[in-house]
Design a protein around this nucleic acid. Structure first.
Lengths: 199, 199, 199, 199
DNA sequence: TATGAATGAGCATTCATTCAT
DNA sequence: CATGAATGAATGCTCATTCAT
């Protein structure tokens, strides 16, 4: 009530974009792209639905922004996993980071990995999330091969896609609570390490 | 009017359901679920759009029927692969069958594997295609483990999902023409065999 | 009630397009383009608003069709006026036909002559109604000049526009009931004849 | 804070109303009434869009003010034309003034003469621009008739509307650059003079 | 069995206007 | 005076589905 007190809530309440983002994420995860109306997002954020269009040109852009945010968030989680040295450690660290993210943001990856054809039969999402993910695994495989840690006769691109797909699918099942997290990391680490390692 | 008369036009033209199925498949593959209207399917089949509802209660049922047909078709392709004895042979045979099917029906798997949330936020597809596929791989892993061909410490369900996901993702990329079919079968066979085999 | 009776109402009731056209005309005349919603037109026609889009791709097309119908209708009225020989007679006949049409369809010309910028800031109506009208008067002036009936030093295009504008404006006022029809035809006939005639 | 201090920034920059007026005119001319949003006007004027409502109660009022300004501006142009004595001179002077204004403010007349129904299906614009214009011509005709310069058997109101319409329509075409200005004044002066003069 | 005109709930989006700062 | 985030009624249009023929 005094001038002094007013200093404290520097950011009194999250601004509308922040709230829209949170609501968009929540609803895209819960209901999927097609079952979520811009109006629902705005209402969930406690805003009039005109406000939605103050921040996004259209619904598609909002979804794409959600995907991009998820991508960056996940990258932050995965970043420290890349510092590991040994292949097996790197795989384990990556899987752990991945499932940590999944736990922290249940369903987000599943929603964000939605095939772009679902959103827009024509449009071109810069690089579909899964593809960029596959590329990262391909690089990991390539690097390891150069270091002699990995069987050299693999085509890294193919293996990259295979790994990305395996993780996506197990992740989806995990997010439906069908599979035990700990076991999953353990099994997949051993599975991938065994498949990849040099000898 | 008599049975005799009916013999003549032995099989003039495929009946309407058959034609609807073909058109539905074509359009679901080309455009995806949401961008395909019942009307488009009927028109593509050369039928009035009321006829669509003579054969399907609604659009969702039509899509589900399409998925189910694809599942059965694929199973027929995969059937003889199960007769192989050795793990590696079975894996190679399965992959070959899978990609043969993909070649014969480009895009069908991709479309049929559409996440059910895309179709219907609430509804429960009996068993999602990918899940049933994962189960089959889980069984293969379980069987092989019993025979001592496979590392016994894997949880077959987890590994089943991982394999299904890997195949789905590589299959999608293949259907976009990004990866070479032959190399893919070779790489994946070696990758999976190495990951699975006992020692 | 008998089969015989059923032959009589060959066209039982006007089909939906006919009714939409009538309602569109009525509402465009009464309220103008912007204050008329496709839904209003359909409702006025006793149809669901989806039906509107069975017949027109959009509201603009419906308006343009209305304008075109009016143009053709008016042309039919004007047709016999062209058979007259002497300039003064032709002018008088044209004016009479014009105001007959205006009486038969009050407000239609006013609405149909709506500047295209009002409908669509960008779009290009083939030939705006008033312009095509101006061209007809330009031709009349040109013909008369060749026959020596008219002062030859006029630029027919300019004069054509001037006459079209004069008739449009007087027609608008007439349709608001401000000016007496008979007097108007008489005054304008004399005015135009005097302005045009050779000597 | 004192009157003295206020003298210094004599007229730093046009005040906001002036700038709004200029932007409103520009945009109403370029895009028409319906395609111009209050927000566009304010932004074009370099002002926040709340400011618009400090000066006008609503968009309609702004448009009406634009029309009124144009009317007064044009009157100033036409004023000296009224001082001419002979009918033909007065007509020529008026036309010249009119087209001078059109050149100085291209498109303004066209926009300002927008039929009031376009702005507001119900509302009553005090006196539509074209009507007041027609009245002025009617007065000119009446005056000339009293002086014996003009054929007395015309109804001045009808002729006034006819002339106003003719000038409007030719003006529109001129503003689209279809007709030559000089020729237009010459042709119309002769046309009107011939039509009006006593004998 | 086949048709396609008709339907209207529903959707994405716009825009004139308000009001707290 | 000035601002611009916020609003929500309103709009043009789509599409899964029905039903009279």
């Amino acid at each position: 009530m005094t001038g002094v007190a007013e200093v404290i809530p520097i950011k009194k309440r999250p601004d509308s974009l922040t709230r829209l983002k949170a609501s968009a994420r929540k609803l895209f995860v819960e209901r999927g792209y097609h079952a979520t109306r811009p109006q629902d997002i705005a209402r969930d954020a406690g805003l009039g639905h005109g406000t939605f269009y103050l921040h996004y040109p259209d619904k598609r852009a909002c979804f794409l922004a959600f995907v991009d945010d998820a991508r960056q968030e996940l990258n932050a989680f995965l970043a420290h996993a890349r510092t590991e040295n040994m292949l097996e450690e790197r795989i384990a660290a990556t899987l752990n980071a991945l499932y940590e993210y999944s736990d922290a943001h249940p369903g987000v990856l599943r929603a964000a990995l939605t095939d772009k054809m679902v959103i827009d039969a024509e449009g071109a999402q810069a690089t579909p999330f899964l593809v960029s993910w596959a590329e990262e695994w391909a690089n990991l495989v390539r690097d390891a091969a150069e270091k002699g840690e990995t069987c050299k006769s693999y085509n890294p691109d193919i293996i990259g896609h295979a790994i990305a797909g395996a993780l996506h699918q197990t992740g989806c099942e995990a997010s439906r609570g069908q599979l035990c997290r700990k076991q999953m990391v353990d099994n997949l680490t051993r599975f991938l390490t065994k498949a990849l390692k040099a000898n």
